[in-house]
Simulated assay, not measured.
Amino acid sequence: MSLKDFAARHVRLTVEGKTASILLDRPERKNPLTFESYAELVAIFRAAVQDDTVGAFVVSGSGGNFCSGGDVHEIIGPLLDRDTKGLMQFTAMTGELVKAMRACPQPILSAVDGIAAGAGAIIAMASDLRIATPRAKVAFLFNRVGLAGCDMGACAMLPRIIGQGRASELLYTGRSMSAQEGLEWGFFSRTVEPEALMQAAEDLARGITEGPGFANAMTKRMLAMEWAMSIEQAIEAEAVAQALCMTTADFRRAYEAFAAKRRPVFEGN
């Protein structure tokens, strides 16, 4: 399915050129997730695997906030009435979102303004790139509601981004990580003023989509796979990955453009 044909009802999905944008749009509640929006996000990222016309995603929230996590009234409250089997079904479903984001071959960029809490923090964490405004606050606040910090892959992914000690502090205390901390710790790649956030995110996404699509997907795949590899295994795996990239038309286009002293125009194949 082309993402242009995806009929999203619970998030706003738009495709401009090669960039797909997802807007979490419940500003009156700081853009919380519902059972339906969880499922829709999973479906979008799963569908992206089959859409090679899209080269990158931008995820953002409306109204000066990114995402406040699971909706207290529509998700948290109803969970209290579920048995263990029902709760396992829910936590498996939330984990599917991160799995879908990581399996999606396109790089995902989160543009974080204001609050990114709980599942909102996880969406930012599971993205490939993150840009923030100075007022961004990221909180893995699970322990503040009586839960463990090991939610949706946080104990696996967050230490790899900001380090074990810093991740431990955030997951044990549930406190907010400021935009400045996020920048210094490598969680955010840059900060920009709120009015410049979407333009910066779209420009970065556009720059990615102008690159070689197959090779970008391979980079994302290897970044994930090599977490569980030794250096020797990684070198061997990258040799295979790079050789595959050398079979693409984009590799030939790059060579021909270099020889002709012009900028290559990649087509993703």
Rank of each mutant, 00 (worst) to 15 (best):
A121S: 07
M225S: 06
G165W: 03
S62M: 10
K4A: 06
P264G: 09
G69M: 11
A167V: 01
D151A: 15
I115L: 15
S21R: 14
K85C: 04
E40F: 07
A217E: 05
A126T: 06
G120W: 06
G61V: 03
A241C: 11
T219W: 10
A136F: 03
M198P: 01
Y38R: 15
F188M: 05
A116T: 08
R29S: 12
Q233K: 03
C245P: 03
D113C: 12
G153W: 08
P78C: 06
T84S: 08
N65M: 08
G149N: 05
V138E: 01
P159K: 05
P105E: 00
V59W: 02
L183Y: 12
V98E: 09
A136I: 01
L147A: 14
A117P: 07
F251N: 08
A234N: 11
F188D: 02
S168P: 01
A136N: 01
T133V: 04
A119N: 11
A20W: 00
T94I: 13
E193T: 11
T94M: 13
T219V: 15
L223E: 09
P134Y: 02
L129C: 09
R253D: 13
D5H: 09
E232Y: 05
T91R: 09
E36P: 04
G163F: 07
Y172A: 15
V145I: 12
A8V: 14
G118W: 05
D71A: 13
K4Q: 11
A237L: 04
V112L: 09
D250V: 04
K85A: 13
M93T: 13
G153E: 02
L204G: 03
T91Y: 15
L33P: 03
V49Y: 11
A117Q: 14
C155T: 15
A100H: 06
I208V: 10
T248E: 06
L13Q: 05
L87S: 01
A148R: 09
A224L: 13
A119L: 15
A196E: 14
P27K: 05
S176I: 00
A43P: 11
R252F: 06
I115E: 15
L129R: 13
I162W: 02
I235F: 06
L244P: 03
M1S: 11
S110T: 12
A8M: 13
R130N: 06
K4S: 11
V138S: 03
A39P: 05
N31W: 08
A119C: 13
T209M: 04
F35D: 11
E195W: 05
A100R: 05
L183I: 07
I231L: 14
I161L: 11
S127V: 02
T247M: 07
Q50W: 02
V72S: 14
D81L: 14
D128A: 11
R130Q: 07
T173Y: 01
L223D: 09
E169P: 09
V192M: 10
F35H: 14
S68Q: 10
M222W: 03
F266P: 03
I76M: 14
V58W: 01
G153R: 08
G63L: 06
A243Y: 04
T53R: 02
M225C: 04
L171S: 07
I161G: 03
P194Q: 06
E193N: 08
K137Y: 08
F35N: 12
T248K: 00
R29M: 11
L33A: 09
K30E: 12
W227C: 08
V59N: 00
K137P: 02
P212A: 12
A217C: 08
G174H: 04
N269F: 07
Y172D: 15
T94N: 07
E195P: 02
